[in-house]
């Protein structure tokens, strides 16, 4: 495993730890989109259906279980925890899942490497992951106050796929791996969606101001 891949996985893991910290210690999910979190559950469930069938490494299996477990528990806290659920900005988190799920599923049926259940689900999970942050970004744009934890959470989540892009470049040129258009292009789109957020995040950090996205 190269350093970019590890950095990507670690920023991804750190983003989840940050969000769980906000939920468990602060007892708050203010500014967090339940829609996005539910999309991540769908992403992980459809991508890791091969967990019981194919073994790559201890690291891989553990990380998959962690991503599945934490994403499900985040959704549980936001929906059912009696204190946390009251901090959820339900009225502004209105993005409809189906507008993302349906096109991604149709695209996965049309563009995939092999027309098998596992392969189509895997492809679907990549397409859906690329756009799953959209409800979260819409929610941030509508929020007057973005707390540091939430801002850092979204930043780490964006940094994760950016590191994966470097990892793919490294694997292609240095480790001589094959071309993989589906993960590469969806990963590129996923990172590009964060461009605007990155710009304002870095700007607010440089000016030591509170993060605010223009409406």
């Amino acid at each position: 495993m190269n350093a970019f891949r590890l950095a990507g996985d670690m920023t991804h893991l750190l983003s989840i730890i940050l969000l769980l910290h906000k939920i468990r210690a602060m007892k708050s999910c203010a500014g967090i989109s339940l829609r996005t979190q539910e999309l991540y559950v769908i992403v992980f469930v459809t991508r890791y259906v091969d967990l019981s069938m194919k073994y790559y490494s201890f690291y891989n299996s553990i990380m998959k279980i962690v991503f599945l477990g934490t994403s499900i528990s985040i959704v549980w806290y936001m929906r059912y925890h009696k204190v946390v659920k009251q901090t959820y900005n339900k009225d502004v988190d209105t993005f409809r899942h189906i507008f993302l799920i349906l096109p991604c599923f149709v695209l996965a049926l049309l563009i995939n490497r092999a027309f098998t259940v596992i392969e189509v689900l895997w492809t679907f999970s990549l397409y859906l992951e690329a756009v799953a942050i959209l409800p979260q970004l819409v929610l941030l744009q509508r929020s007057r106050n973005i707390d540091n934890l939430t801002g850092n959470y979204v930043f780490l989540l964006g940094a994760y796929r950016a590191f994966y892009l470097l990892n793919w470049i490294y694997r292609f040129f240095i480790e001589n791996h094959q071309v993989r258009w589906i993960p590469w292009l969806s990963g590129l789109l996923q990172t590009a969606i964060y461009a605007d957020f990155f710009y304002y995040y870095i700007k607010s950090w440089k000016n030591r101001e509170k993060l605010k996205l223009p409406a």
Partner: peptide, 10 residues
């Protein structure tokens, strides 16, 4: 030849 890409990523 190039290495076959396995789905060993997350």
């Amino acid at each position: 030849g190039r290495a076959v890409s396995r789905k060993d990523e997350l």
